[in-house]
Amino acid sequence: MGTFILRRSLQGFLVVLGVTIVVFVATRMIGDPAQVMLPLSATDAQRAAFEQQFGLDRPLDAQFISFVGDLMRFDFGESLWQRRAALEVVLEKLPKTLELIGVGLLLATVVGIPLGALAAVRPDGLFDRVVVGLSLTGLSVPQFWLGLLLIMVFAVGLGWVPTFGSGSLAHMILPAITLAVPSMARIMMLVRSSVINELNQQYVRTAKARGMPFGRVLFQHAMRNALVPVLTLVGWEVISAWAGYTVVVETVFAWPGLGFTAMKAINHSDLFLLQAIVFVVAVGIVLVNIGLDVLFKLIDPRIKEA
C-alpha cells in the first residue's frame, strides 16, 4: 500500500508539473500579462513599471525559476481585482464550491443508482424505457440552459425558490439539481448496463440455483459487483466537477464559489487569481485521485498491488 501511494503521488507530481509548464507557457510566452492585465489606455511607462514589478522583464528561464519557486511556497501573488493574496481569495471561495459539488453529486448518486438498477430488472420494459429516455435527455441538455429554464419555471414563474445567490437551503436546490442532471444521467446509464451485465453472470445463476430470492440476488450479489465500475464513474464525476465544470452552474446562479470567481477574474483580467485557482484545483485533483485509488483497493479485493 505504501509503495502504491508513493507511485500515485509521483504521478500526481507530474500532473502538477505539467500544469505549471502549461500555465507558464500560456501566460508568459503565448500571452503577455501586461497586455491582458493593464487597461488599453496604459502608457508605455506604466507597462514598463508593471513588468518590472512582477519581474516580467527578466529572461524566460529566470522567470520560470522564480515562478516555480513562488508556487512551491504557495505564493500565487496578489489578486489585482481583490487587492489581497490570491490564495486567500481561493481558500475563501473553496467551501462554497465543495458544498455545491457535494450536494449535487450526492443527489445524482442517490437518485441515479436506484433508478438505474430498477431499470435493469426488466430491460426494455416500460420503466426501463422511461429511465433510458430520461438519461438521454439529461445527457443532451446543456447545463447552462437547464439552469436558466429551472430559474424561469421555479424561481420566476412559480416563485418557490430564489433566483440566484447562496445562503439558505432554498438557494441550494436549483444549482444542485442543475449540476446533478448530467452526472445523474451518466450514472443511471452505467448502473443499468452494469446491473444487466451482472445479472447475466454465472455467479448470479448459481445464486438463483441455491434458492436465493430475487431481491437478495439483485442487491446482495449483482449490485455489489455492478457498483465497482459505478464508483469509478462517481469518482470521475467528482473530479470533472472539481476540474471546473461547476463554472457554468456557478455563473448561471451567481453561486459565490471558485468557478464564479474564475469567471470574475477573467472579466477583471486578474490573471494571478485565475492562476491560483487553476493550481489549487490541480493539486485537489491529484489528492482526490489518490484518495479514490486507495478507496477502490479497499472495496475490491481483486485489485492487486501493482
Binding site: 453472470q201 454465472q202 455467479y203 445463476r205 448459481t206 445464486a207 438463483k208 440455483a209 441455491r210 434458492g211 436465493m212 446482495q220 450479489h221 455489489r224 459487483n225 465497482v228 475490491d300 479485493p301 481483486r302
Partner: peptide, 23 residues
Amino acid sequence: ASLRGKSLSMVFQDPMTSLNPLM
C-alpha cells in the same frame, strides 16, 4: 422455489465464474 438450493441443488460447469468475486 422452496426446494431449490435445499432438497434440489446443482453444481455448475465453470467453478471460476460461479462464485461471487466480492463475497
